Structures are given as structure tokens and as C-alpha cells.
Amino acid sequence: MFSTSNTLLYADKLTDFNMPMPHIYACHLSDQLIQFTGPDKKSYLHGQITQDVNLLTNDALLWAGQCDAKGKLWSILRLFNFQDDYFAITSKDEIENALAEFKKYAVFAKVDIEQNKNHQLVGLFGDDLSAVLSELEIILPTENNSTIDFKFGKAIKLDNNRLILCIDKKAQLPSCITLLESEQKWQSLSILAGEPKLNNQAIAEYVPQMVNLQAIGGISFKKGCYKGQETVARMKFLGKNKRAMYILEANTNKPFEATEVEQQLGENWRRAGKLIQTSFDIDTNRAYALAIMPNDLALDTLLRTKQENPISIEIKPLPYSLIEE
């Protein structure tokens, strides 16, 4: 169990995600861990995902997609190396299908694939993390999407203000951290960073480029074969992909209830796309979402949720480019 002297829910209000955060916050993440062990783990994993596993060094964090034979995503993964094993972070909605698909052909290789329940994932965020980094004896690398071993486990740097800690369940967090009872603020920050994640309705619905996986380095177009490769390659080289993932924000006093988004065409409203992740910040009355919509949609397009009493939505700029080299 974790212990901290500041176990308050949203102890001090963050009025805006762009404003300085005076405290260091943490929350338990609902994301899950898949662990790959055995002498064939590298070659087996390499043939199952969109990423080049040869790039998975001890200090790297790599995005990857796990596809079915048609190139549709079973899961979106963040890969890292810890104690000579490979670990994949995926959402609680994705893990069941991800594990089943990974294990389907594992009987033909010397690899064990299991959900890791000995460690847990903690999201750590704040404007200045130096106090907790010093207490945990973590010296972060300069690069984002990097990892480092420390005395309690693995620290994963997403950016200067956000870390994921993969630590033993019995490890204690320093008292300088305010532990939140909800991960909604963390989810909002993740959405604003354009980090893709699938909900139940999105599993096996989209090819990797539709969730911007190519824009965050999650697809290798130079590696060998993997499930769904033909579709993924066709999307790139023949320009077949017509959809992308967008960041949405709404000023509202309630969370999104919808699963779909509509756009205004003249005096009418037409379906624009589906929501794959949502979050709600009770302090700022803002709802956030990731949505899959046409990739030529203008940022000033008028949008609303498809629900009773629709909510008007604004498209936020992505923090990365979708233009492929």
C-alpha cells in the first residue's frame, strides 16, 4: 500500500492546465501491465507489433500498435525494458483482448506472456518535480519518452511535468506528494498531449494511422512482417487513410455522455466521428476527449456531442505534426 500525509482529493484547485502547479500530484493509474519473459521474447514480440523491438533499449519508451490480420488495432502499447524483461502498458479496456491475441501463437515460441500484478503504475505530475525526484533518487534523462531504473522500480519520463512510476505495490511515495483519489486530471493531461488510448468500443475499429500512431513514432515501416502490416503499409504508401485523431475540449458542467460527435453542415448536423477517450475536470468545468474524425477536418469546424442536450466542442491543436516525411 502507498502512504502519504496528503491524501486529499484535488487538495488545491488547478484553475488551468497551463497555469503553474504549486504542488506535486500523483494518482493510481487504471492502465495495466503485460510482461514478456523467455529467450524468444524479442523475436516473438517483434513479429506481433508495429514497432521495431530492436530499438527497445533499457532507457527507451516506445509506442506500438498490436493489430489483427486486417490491420485493425487490438491495443495501443507503451513498451519499456525492466529487469531483462519487456513490459507493455495498455489500458484496462484493451488488456483482455491484447493478452488473448499475444498468447494465441506463443505456444510455438519460448516466451511467457502474463499480466503483471506485482507492480502498479502511478502517474506523477506537477510544475516542479524536483523535490520528489530528489527524494526518490531519480535523475531523469533529458529526452522525453525515456526511462530510468531507480530503487523502487522504473521511472518513465513523458515530458518535464509528467512521469509514470512502475513500482512494487509495497513501495511508499514521499510525503511531498498529494495523492488524488481520481485519475481524471491525469487523463486530461494525457488527452491534451495527444496520447492515444482505446476504449471498449474502439477495439478492432481503427488502423494505427487513424489514432496518429505514426506521428508519435509508433510504426516502423522498415521492419519485417507483423500481423496487419499490409494494411498499415497501404495506408502510408497509397494514401488510403482518411481519418485522424483529434483533441476536443468543451466548457461544460458535466462529463461527455455521448460516444459520437456531429459537425454542422448548413442548418443540419451530420455525424463527424467517434470518441475513444474522455475526461472531466470538476475544478475547471472542462471536458476533454480524443475523437477519430476525417483527417481533412478544419480546426474551426463547429462540433457538438450527439446526445440529448448536446455540448458544443472546440478542436484543440495537436502537439505534433501529422505530415509524414
Rank of each mutant, 00 (worst) to 15 (best):
G224S: 14
Y25N: 15
A289S: 11
L165T: 04
E183T: 05
C27E: 10
W74K: 09
N295H: 09
G218Q: 01
N160P: 00
L297S: 09
Q35P: 08
S43K: 14
A287G: 12
S321N: 06
L179M: 12
M1K: 14
D112C: 05
Q48Y: 11
H23W: 12
C225A: 14
D127N: 10
N58G: 06
I167R: 06
V232E: 07
T4Y: 07
Y105T: 09
L29D: 03
G217E: 03
M210F: 01
Q35D: 04
L29G: 05
I247W: 05
N18G: 02
G273A: 12
E96I: 12
H23F: 15
E230M: 10
P255C: 09
I89N: 00
E230C: 10
E308F: 03
Q263L: 01
D296M: 12
S182E: 13
L61F: 05
M245Q: 04
K157N: 05
I282L: 11
E260D: 06
N54G: 12
Y10L: 08
I203C: 08
T142F: 04
L322V: 02
T284M: 13
E267S: 14
A204E: 15
E230V: 06
Y320K: 01
C27D: 06
W186N: 02
G218V: 00
K316P: 05
G47N: 15
R243I: 05
L29E: 07
N295V: 02
L9H: 09
Q277Y: 03
Y86W: 13
L265M: 08
M235C: 15
S279M: 11
Q115H: 05
I138Y: 01
S30L: 04
L61S: 03
P141W: 08
A244R: 07
S182L: 02
S190Q: 06
M19C: 12
A289Q: 02
T147A: 15
D128S: 09
Q209A: 00
Q83H: 15
C225D: 13
T57C: 08
W74V: 07
G224V: 06
G224T: 14
L163S: 02
C67K: 04
L62W: 01
S3V: 11
V111N: 06
S220E: 00
K42S: 01
Y25D: 11
I49Q: 02
G228K: 13
Q83F: 12
L121H: 15
V53A: 10
Y226S: 02
K104Q: 06
R162S: 07
I24N: 14
Y226G: 01
W269R: 03
D84K: 15
A26S: 13
T301W: 07
N160R: 00
K223N: 01
L173G: 04
L124R: 02
Q32V: 03
K236Y: 13
G71N: 03
G239Y: 04
Y86V: 06
D59H: 05
I148L: 09
C176E: 12
G224L: 04
I76H: 12
S30N: 04
L290M: 15
V261Y: 08
L165E: 04
Y246Q: 01
K13P: 13
P174M: 13
I113V: 12
Y105V: 05
E262A: 11
R78N: 11
L158Q: 08
L133M: 12
L173Q: 01
G71Y: 02
A131V: 13
R234P: 06
P196I: 14
